[in-house]
Design a binder for these strands. Sequence first.
DNA 1: AGTATTTGACCGCG
DNA 2: CGCGGTCAAATACT
Length: 272
Amino acid sequence: MNENNLHSSKRKRVIVELIKGKETATRLQTLLQDPVQDHDPALVNQLALQILRSFTKTLSELSSCAESTQIAALSGESKKKQVVKDGRGCYKRRKSVDSWVTVSSTMEDGCAWRKYGQKVILNSEYPRCYFRCTHKHEGCKALKQVQIMKEDPNIMYQITYFNRHTCQETLISTPQIDLDPYEPNLICFQSKVPIISQMKKEEDTQSEDAKSLVMDPWQDIMVGSEPIWDPRTMMRSYGEEEGSSLHGLDMEVNQFSNIDYFHIDEIFSSYN
DNA sequence: AGTATTTGACCGCG
DNA sequence: CGCGGTCAAATACT
């Protein structure tokens, strides 16, 4: 199989997976729009999980062939680290490492991450944050780097993932979905913390209307009292005692993903 | 008390 | 020697 055919088949698989994800999302939307109130939570969970799986498979598929050029182009890395030694600061990452880049309006991805570092990056307005899988003790080597891209008027995160999860992460953090009583089209993905919606308009002290809050998951986070990420400092801050949590993966079903498809187009273009 | 985050130090590479 | 990735003690939070 020559390279073009390889890329073509990969592209097909990616598209098939995206279509599958979209169809599942549509199914979920249809289900949630059903006036019947007591949706089967297991089915809702299953659909949500399938959607997340589609994204994961898509990203993994893309990562396996476009990673090197994309990482190099987008994160300014990739040229170093062949040496594997013990000790602090050792560089274990290689070009061949399983890695991929996404651009998203939220850093949330349904996985549990633990922050282990933050660095000011030269010529970057915002620091870069380093996360590893919470289940590192299980041997999971998944890492991610989060960097705010300053070009966009809306905050966009460039997230670089390294290594796939080898832990039971996706099972543990199976998204549970609650219908928002105030925004029936809004579903709330969460990993652990119970959600009580904060989308009530009367609690919105900012000038944006409810629609913009829905459109921008970051705004969603800002409303709750969960520890939240200040996009400027890239650090946690804690809100008032009352209120409740709302995770950043909230989105309208119609705008089902925060993944930046333009970026995926970029990845595709690297095949040609 | 246990867990997560912050932050300055440390380290290898170019 | 500067940069970026990681470590780990101190700190914060639950």
